[in-house]
Design a binder for these strands. Structure first.
Lengths: 338, 338
DNA sequence: CTGAAAGCGCTTACAG
DNA sequence: CTGAAAGCGCTTACAG
């Protein structure tokens, strides 16, 4: 395999000129550049990664730690992993995947050996040891999610409270005065990530601010429990006319089937909004309005902040990405007299 | 951050002695070793990855290409990705995750720049351009799955034909003379990986060899279609008494519910085996016998073969991993007179 | 059992 | 606009 000396020889220049020509870090004469380009093509030259890492100040690799918890929804998890990898490539970075059983040891290893320039931390939980470790190591990092103690850390996440508030506002603005939120299984609120809690709190707070009635109910993932949670909520007094669902894809379908099975029509009898789905709700029956959680949004921003930490142009911060609303026709004014 | 010179100075030895002490590539005197260990601990020394890569012959990184197709079942996909990463760590290798939109360019890039020592190719399809590229680049690689043209390549996969044959044998040995296989959606057989086809062919061939009646039916993933495929098969003449299901987790559940809904009991009225599931079937109602597809098995072997290619001790081959049978009580003798 | 030194393939001041 | 050279942090023959 050709190296930089080969290219220099063939092009009749010094290796430093080749290096500068390829990096663009200093101006190169027209003809010189052409000869170098020609030599590079002729030799099918590609700079050696190790040589580059050692001589330069960057490895152009980020580590990605993405633990798969028992309550993790795999498709969403995968979407985030891929979004990080894709975003990294846009900054000419590669992604090294750390395994779960090596969560903290792996972080230590790749940062101490300088294998990576920084770390992207996915699915951050409230008491996340990775957050403390990253802080202790002083390694450039961007967390996706917000740990309990975010001091000194760079975090990016969807603004889940604003997302929930947005759902409430839409429903209240449409005329609804009694709302309900169907959420994740109880275990999800007790451990793991804190976003379900933030979504729930945002929902209840905004409902209170808007002076409307609001209730919240958790559901397990199995169809019977989903139905009983749904019916429990629908049978309340006053009966909610606006429903927000924060759950996995399959659970949404069960909810919609159960609503239809009850003879209720969306949005005529009930307005429904999908909480912060990572999946597409436009193909549901009926299509659901949603406030989507878009992996690319937070991941791209996280990678960007990680890259900028390397120039020292980023201070610790918690950055919340503003939610957006997608209309698919599942929200309307409540029926008269309901 | 301390480097090897610091360690050598503190320990009062040369850097080569430090290097050899850490790699274990030559014998080190008792006291010398202790002094070096002490210095390493004192300085919290960890060898620089780039220096190691450049001086050594290995980067200790494998690239992993794992495209997410539209018909990919995400949890299985993720399980394979993690299994590769975990297996790689056992050989002191890290895994670099290639993105889909960079499938071939990424392979080219990381192998030409010598960023990686080899490539693990996941979810290989029949006409997989990655297989051809790997062959053309001559880069050490292990494919998980078997491409149409496996010449010159190292491939590892479950022996799907043997797995299907094993299912047939179990049922026939239990006394069943009429079998059915419920398979994936039609699209899966037409493109993508070839393992569904291999499983189907293995099923039909062995049934023929054993001289029993066998039919095969594909199903889409939605519950209505699953039920109609199931009923279509059960209503055939002669009615199958042994059923093999090769599908996603959710589809299995729909099948089992539909069987129960028909008033049939497993295994009394119908013996059922889960094809090559990547999920646990022991928690199903009822628990299902299975011939599991265990990501760790094939991935560990693939990583091992990739590592051994680097010593040149592996010739191109297609290695099929033998299937195993897991009993959970869903197979019994057919009812008399049925 | 140990050391001095070459060399891996780059980048980047330094010099012109 | 270009070049000669130092140096990044290791590994590994070579020598004793």
């Amino acid at each position: 395999m050709a190296n930089i000396h080969d290219v220099a020889r063939v092009a009749g220049v010094s290796i430093s000129t080749v290096s500068y020509a390829l990096s663009g870090k200093r101006p190169i004469g027209e003809k010189t550049r052409l000869r170098i380009d020609q030599a590079v093509r002729e030799l099918d030259y590609m700079p050696n990664a190790a040589g580059r890492m050692l001589a330069g100040t960057r490895t152009r690799i980020f580590a990605l730690t993405a633990p798969l918890r028992s309550d993790t929804y795999t498709p969403a998890h995968m979407a985030f992993v891929l979004a990080v990898a894709t975003a990294a490539r846009q900054y000419d970075y590669d992604v090294l995947l750390l395994t779960e059983d090596e969560a903290t040891d792996g972080l230590r290893r790749v940062s101490s050996s300088r294998l990576v320039d920084g770390i992207i931390v996915l699915d951050v939980s409230i008491n996340d040891e990775r957050a403390d470790l990253v802080r202790a190591l002083g390694v450039p990092a961007a967390l996706i999610g917000v740990p309990g103690n975010a001091e000194g850390l760079v975090c990016v996440d969807l603004d889940f409270e604003a997302a929930a508030a947005l759902a409430v506002d839409r429903l209240v603005d449409a005329g609804h005065a009694s709302l309900a939120l169907l959420g994740h299984p109880q275990a999800v609120y007790e451990r793991g990530s804190n976003f379900p809690t933030r979504f729930r709190d945002g929902f209840l707070r905004r409902a209170s601010e808007r002076g409307v009635d609001a209730r919240f109910s958790m559901m397990e993932k199995d169809a019977p429990d989903v139905r009983s949670a749904l019916f429990g909520v629908l049978d309340a007094d006053p009966a909610p006319t606006g429903l927000v669902v924060h759950a996995e894809e399959g659970v949404h379908k069960v909810v919609l089937e159960a609503i239809a099975g009850r003879g209720l029509s969306v949005p005529r009898d009930l307005s429904v909004i999908a909480g912060v789905p990572t999946f597409d709700t436009s193909g549901f029956t009926p299509p659901l309005d949603s406030i989507p959680l878009i992996p690319a949004d937070t991941c791209t921003r996280a990678v960007e902040l990680a890259v900028r930490q390397l120039d020292g142009t980023v201070a610790p911060r918690v950055e919340l990405v503003a939610p957006t609303y997608r209309e698919h026709g599942s929200v309307a004014a409540p029926r008269r007299g309901s």
